[in-house]
Design a protein around this nucleic acid. Structure first.
Length: 871
RNA sequence: GGGGAUGUAGCUCAGUUGGCUAGAGCGCUUGACUGGCAGUCAAGAGGUCGUCGGUUCGAGCCCGAUCUUCUCCA
């Protein structure tokens, strides 16, 4: 049975049990501050569990792409070392939202595994929560009894809170779970050691395949549990592990899903799988990581140096590291796996096919950049080894190694490897100490504490009515205090709101809540947490229970709307001018400007840019009215030709924004007709990553101000040039002239200095047999220096002492030829320091040349004679 | 979001506690040698030392702000 068939049978089974089959949500999470990536099947249903939203259907099943790189279940550094952990994996799941509970969940799971997938019941073990005293939760005897009817009691095991009590986070829904494990060992091994003793013991062939979570509690901020009003079922079964069990393989990597990738790498590296442990690990790491990287990029998450993008970069670099170190691949190779992956997984995941070009380009570019980093690191590594040789027992110091790792991105294991080759060891304890320090710093800086929600009114969750009104009456449903970086603020949930919450690139509204007394509470930002609209303010309104008037800052909203509609026109214009490969990869719509990132493989030329602007201007002056359709079925929207974005999650009902030919799925706020946008101006076009360009545009008021200022500036320039016919030529002429004059002055100064030099030479005297010039001149210090160096070059034995007056400043310079410095141990610096006070200044230099500066030119004469007396 | 590093000639970089008139290699221009190419030699052009402000007699170097790029942590 292939992986695709396994997936399909899962869907068919739960469809028969009355479940709706829904598509996988994107990998990248937008409206959840606690998560960077979808890491479990339930992520997209979080709001249903939290009670922020009610589920449209009560039974759902799907296969969800998930990414896990850290946490209690998985760590990036472990993936590939064993044969059953992954970064990206598919999670098959079935859900009940306040519908069926333990009985059906357990019975159906059993039916599917034993009757559809035909797993041998003798190979299956289940675990049941044993209860926990500190939480005062009893054992899950209900599950225990249900299982006892299906499976040999010796295959039912009790497990602790650590393994069998599931929690969404520090607070929120939680409950006991029951896990199904499968024993895939040979008959002989099974008879030697009973499978029951290997469950939950990290045995590669006795593994958990399905987890059934029964949500029945809510954990509060003080740690206590309260029962949930409605109970839910959340299950998750790793497709990769299931495939291994059903295909009778010893490892996930032996299934058809991974073999194609591994075989490609075997050919490329000229090394076979299954011959040596290090090679196998490297091949597994690469086969695993390429999936995570490719899917993330397809969902719009590019490698970057912070946030979610940094996680992707780290995964990519880990894969390259294994290829570089173990497989000895010294040039980019990851990108060559993309066609294989597309062949393998392009069918269920169409985004891979349509984004193939971009994914390949981005990965290749990232690989190249990492190879550059490695090259730099190797140079630094050489320096470090040179500096350490023969010291500290040839141990590279932890702080130095950490610097190499932290600042220059050179991987620790590579440092150790190269070190070993040259006879050095690494002070790992010292390194880890530095790493811990850095982690603590970061944690301290991001510390955020949230109190429990305080319920004020029992009403329905927030409704956004800001498409139609800018002001409305509302009440506070609940609020909580949040502390971040010693700054306290409050989050409010309102019964209804005109405030747009930051989403789809459009920033949140600002405004006020006003009570009946006219007291204003400033709302400084509005964000979404999952689908809950949260208003941020620095202090609570005085009267929490009463009806308040919510008002948004209108002028700011208007500017935002202009920029948002302009974004749509820009998107459409780019696709028209450059081609339909242009897709939105990021967007920011603020009151001041708009920023639009899109896929395109070359710089947008000036001509193309001209076309884009004029197309946008045409549409603005045509004053096309907004055609807004709310609650449109997604199928209908797509048949209208609406553009949907990859990596964006859409519900069944969507909102469509149309301005003529520009049709997009969009939840943002817009102008009523394009004419309102007014002027536009493109401020910049630049690259942000391989294959991704960024355009920044201003519109409306901001553009008007810009053009006004430019025009005023131009007028000033013209006036300065006495209104010439051709301003550019005037400026060019002026610049040419200026350059010519500069050179002329330089030549004149040189000429003058020559004269002064000749003059000084004529006053050359011998003091105690040493040729010496001691004079006062009125030129700048730089020229003095110039002349003195020339004289020093001319006379093998020579002392020059010059005092100069330059405006209201004055200076002293002494030069001594090298032979006198050597033979008489004269020191110009010492001399100049001694006499500098005479001109109320200070100075210094080197033994053969020193200068001093000061304010009192009356002191020059005495300073000069004092210096002369040194000879 | 927090830390570290980085920015000097067209490119790759050096510049030691602030003071040897801002350097090297490659590239570029010109000339010489050789029958041509390749090459060798010689001469030369090319720099607001990221930007702004400060300290100092003097700043590429020190201090503050800001931008770029890289990197680690969250």
């Amino acid at each position: 049975m292939t992986v695709s068939e396994i997936r399909q049978q899962f869907f068919d089974f739960f469809e028969r049990k009355g479940h709706a089959i829904v598509p996988s949500a994107p990998l990248v999470i937008k409206n959840d501050p606690t998560l960077l990536f979808t890491n479990a099947g339930m992520n997209q249903f979080k709001d249903y569990f939290l009670g922020n939203e009610s589920a449209p259907v009560k039974r759902i099943a799907n296969s969800q792409k998930c990414l896990r790189v850290s946490g209690k279940h998985n760590d990036l550094e472990e993936v590939g070392v064993d044969t059953y952990h992954h970064t990206l994996f598919e999670m098959l799941g079935n859900w009940s939202f306040g519908d069926y509970f333990k009985k059906e969940a357990i019975e159906w799971a059993w039916e599917l595994l034993t009757e559809v997938y035909k797993l041998n019941p003798q190979d299956l073990y289940v675990t049941v929560f044993e209860g926990d005293e500190t939480d005062k939760v009893p054992m899950d005897s209900e599950s225990n009894e249900l299982w006892a009817k299906l499976i040999d009691p010796s295959h039912i095991l009790l497990a602790s809170k650590k393994d069998n009590f599931w929690e969404m986070g520090d607070t929120g829904p939680c409950g006991p779970c029951t896990e199904i494990h499968v024993d895939l060992r040979s008959t002989e091994e099974k008879s030697n050691i009973p499978g029951a003793s290997l469950v939950n013991n990290d045995h590669p062939q006795v593994i958990e395949i399905w987890n059934l979570v029964f949500m029945q509690f809510n954990r509060k901020a003080n740690g206590s549990l309260e029962p949930l009003p409605a109970t839910h079922v959340d299950t998750g079964m790793g497709l990769e592990r299931l495939a291994m069990a059903l295909q009778g393989k010893q490892s996930n990597y032996d299934t058809d899903l991974f073999q194609a990738l591994i075989q490609h790498m075997e050919k490329l590296a000229g090394k076979g799988y299954g011959k040596s442990e290090p090679t196998d690990i490297a091949l597994r790491v690469i086969a695993d990581h390429i999936r995570a990287i490719a899917f993330s990029i397809a969902d719009g998450q590019l490698p970057a140096n912070n946030g979610a993008g940094y996680v992707i970069r780290r995964i990519l670099r880990r894969a390259v590291r294994y290829g570089y170190q173990t497989l000895e691949l010294k040039e980019p190779f990851l990108f060559t796996l993309i066609p294989v992956l597309v062949e393998q997984m392009g069918h269920p995941y169409k985004e891979l096919v349509s984004q193939e070009n971009l994914i390949t380009k981005v990965i290749r570019e990232e690989e190249l950049s990492f190879f550059r980093t490695l090259e730099q690191g190797i140079k630094r590594m050489d320096l470090l080894m040179e500096a350490t040789r023969g010291q500290h027992n040839n141990t590279l110091e932890g702080t130095a190694v950490f610097e190499l790792y932290d600042t220059y991105g050179f991987p620790l294991d590579l440092i150790q490897l190269i070190g070993r080759e040259h006879g050095f060891s690494v002070d790992e304890a010292g390194f880890n100490q530095e790493l811990t320090k850095q982690k603590e710093r970061s944690r301290a800086a991001t510390g955020i504490e949230t109190d429990d929600w305080q319920q004020v009114n029992e009403e329905n969750p927030t409704e956004f009515i800001g498409y139609d009104v800018i002001q409305c009456d509302t009440t506070i449903i609940r609020y909580r205090k949040v502390t971040q970086k010693q700054r306290e603020f409050y989050q409010l949930v309102l019964s209804q709101t005109p405030f747009y919450a930051e989403s789809g690139g459009q920033v949140g509204d600002t405004g006020w809540l006003i009570d009946s007394q006219g007291n204003k509470t400033r709302i400084f930002d509005v964000k979404k947490e999952n689908n809950l609209i949260v208003h941020l303010c620095e202090s609570l309104p005085a009267s929490l229970g009463e009806t308040l008037s919510a008002q948004i800052e209108l002028n700011r909203r208007i500017n935002i709307q202009k920029n948002h509609s302009a974004t749509h026109l820009l998107h459409h214009a780019l696709r028209t001018v450059l081609g339909t490969h242009v897709e939105q990869k990021g967007s920011l719509v603020s009151p001041d400007y708009l920023r639009f990132d899109f896929s395109h493989f070359a710089k947008v030329t000036e001509e193309e840019m001209e076309q884009v602007i004029s197309l946008m201007e045409q549409q603005i002056s045509a004053n096309i009215p907004l055609n807004e359709k709310r609650n449109t079925p997604i199928s209908e929207a797509q048949s209208m030709g609406a553009m949907a974005l990859f990596g964006e999650k859409y519900g069944d009902l969507v909102r469509v924004i149309q301005f003529g030919e520009s049709i997009e799925l969009c939840g943002g706020t817009h102008v009523k007709s394009t004419g309102e946008i007014g002027l536009i101006h493109i401020q910049s076009e630049a690259a942000v990553a391989a294959g991704i360009r960024r355009i920044e545009v201003i519109s409306g008021q901001a553009a008007e101000t810009y053009f006004k200022q430019e025009s005023a500036l131009m007028t000033e320039v013209r006036t300065m040039f006495k209104n010439p016919k051709d301003v550019l030529k005037s400026i060019q002429d002026l610049m040419d002239q200026n350059q010519g004059l500069g050179k002329e002055i330089e030549a004149l100064i040189k000429e003058r200095n020559k004269g002064i030099k000749r003059d000084l030479e004529s006053k050359l005297e011998e003091i105690n047999g040493i040729p010496c010039v001691c004079q006062e001149v009125s030129i700048d210090t730089n020229s003095v220096k110039d002349i003195l160096f020339q004289l020093k070059g001319q006379y093998p034995s020579f002392v020059g002492i010059i005092g100069n007056i330059d405006g209201d400043k004055c200076g002293l310079s002494v030069i001594i030829s090298d032979d006198l410095v050597a033979s008489k141990l004269w020191n110009a610096t010492q001399w100049i320091r001694e006499v500098a006070p005479m001109i109320q200044g200070g100075g210094g230099g080197q033994p053969f040349f020193a200068t001093a500066g000061g304010k009192n030119s009356n002191g020059i004469k005495s300073a000069l004679s004092a210096l002369k007396n040194k000879l």
